[in-house]
Design a protein around this nucleic acid. Sequence first.
DNA 1: CCCATGCAGGCTGTAAACAATAAACACCGC
DNA 2: GCGGTGTTTATTGTTTACAGCCTGCATGGG
Lengths: 262, 262
Amino acid sequence: MSHRPAAGGRSGDETREGASGVSALRDRIAARQPLGRSVKAALEALIESGALPPGARLNEVALAARLGVSRGPVREAARALEKDGLVTVILNRGAFVRTLGLEEAAQIYELNAVLFGHAAALLAERLSGRAGAPEAATLRETVARMDRAVEQGALEAFFADNALFHRQIVEFCGNQPLRAVYLEHTRKLLLLRRRSFDAAGNMRAANAEHHRLLASILAGAAEPARRHAEAHTRAGRARFLAAIAQGGAAAEPSDTPHEQAP
Amino acid sequence: MSHRPAAGGRSGDETREGASGVSALRDRIAARQPLGRSVKAALEALIESGALPPGARLNEVALAARLGVSRGPVREAARALEKDGLVTVILNRGAFVRTLGLEEAAQIYELNAVLFGHAAALLAERLSGRAGAPEAATLRETVARMDRAVEQGALEAFFADNALFHRQIVEFCGNQPLRAVYLEHTRKLLLLRRRSFDAAGNMRAANAEHHRLLASILAGAAEPARRHAEAHTRAGRARFLAAIAQGGAAAEPSDTPHEQAP
DNA sequence: CCCATGCAGGCTGTAAACAATAAACACCGC
DNA sequence: GCGGTGTTTATTGTTTACAGCCTGCATGGG
């Protein structure tokens, strides 16, 4: 089939090439998904990296030019980000990177505590009596890796496995909508705050909480697992708020020198 | 300001008018919001009314013509609906109205039970010691209206106030993200199942549960309120599953004569 | 010196054209 | 008759163009 001039994808027709850095998107990533999807990922990266700080406006034409696509996919991505809660769009004004207020962040932690707690309880029930289940082994491995990271003071590694541990629990609990909601809100927290809160000292405490939680889950004790999971999340909130209080780099919309929504 | 030819909005330039029924959208609704928003609402109405049954495909050009707008806003609305979980889009194939499987519906009920339970607990704490709070009065009124509806066998009225009661509780609990998630998933359940499950007999039972729940909340008893709210939601799930089991009109994707995704 | 008004520019909202994919159909060889 | 293949057609993905809105600045009046 398709004995057409082969077209060679769409890499050839872009004569006005490298306008700037992030480009080169069209050529590789567009492989098997709508462009809007790739653009959304690119925008998320820009937000995470701080290139688009909270309060900044997403200029459609500028971003389109920068990514080497037209405004359509950029618009689509912006609306998707709005649904994800990362930006807010105002009629005829455009999309702005949201600033996560302290109040809202605290509420998200509260929500996450309930969700994570229930996931832990569900998982404990699922694993009850099946200590040899593959999920159990996986969780044990993850915690073991975190132990090593703590010993070595490897912050990045700990962060990664910490996120993985939480993800695995909500994954294994079996409730898909719960998993989706939890991950969505966790990502919101991660993207919109500067992740400078978890000092090395807190790493030890957090890991100890992980051990207690995992023990309850593996013992099949649903309610203790729920309590430990909730307590762990609320402890995370406390760490976050404490870091903010002592002049942490986050939340307050006043320190963004960029244009921002009224 | 704005002493321009007054333009009269954008109602004048559409000479090729009434293509079909649902139209007339552009002229009125577009008042102060992007068209995509209005289109999304229109599509939701079409889904709820059954004009777009589960499994049906959303033809962009057809819908655009029918609503009297171009494909852009329709696309935007379709993507928004995907984020809401009402449709799934497949690359180069389009958007299809989702069919809510029994499994997933049950999981959503489970999630909602936890969320609603926590909302009730939070609200109980908030109202603890403040029996005269305006929220308390509002809730009492809603339940009173439901009492009357039950006596008169007014199903529609009961449904409306039932939804309102739940909405008020998550509203008053003070946690905005929790409220958003709960309402989103509740709407998903409402839109994707034929709401034929709640027979008149169940109405009485549900209302009794409302009374118990409200009593706990007003008494400031957080944990009992949580238990009642969870039980109420799970009872709703049981009613739903029972209705399905006895040949209810829902869920199974096999009975949709329309084209559907593979 | 301060404030309101008029004006210009940039940017978004919407529409319509263009390109490419995927499904459906008809045709051909076996 | 049947499976495979080439072609057609409808529909989506993307780009480009146009119209209106909002904002910022300059200008004139109080």
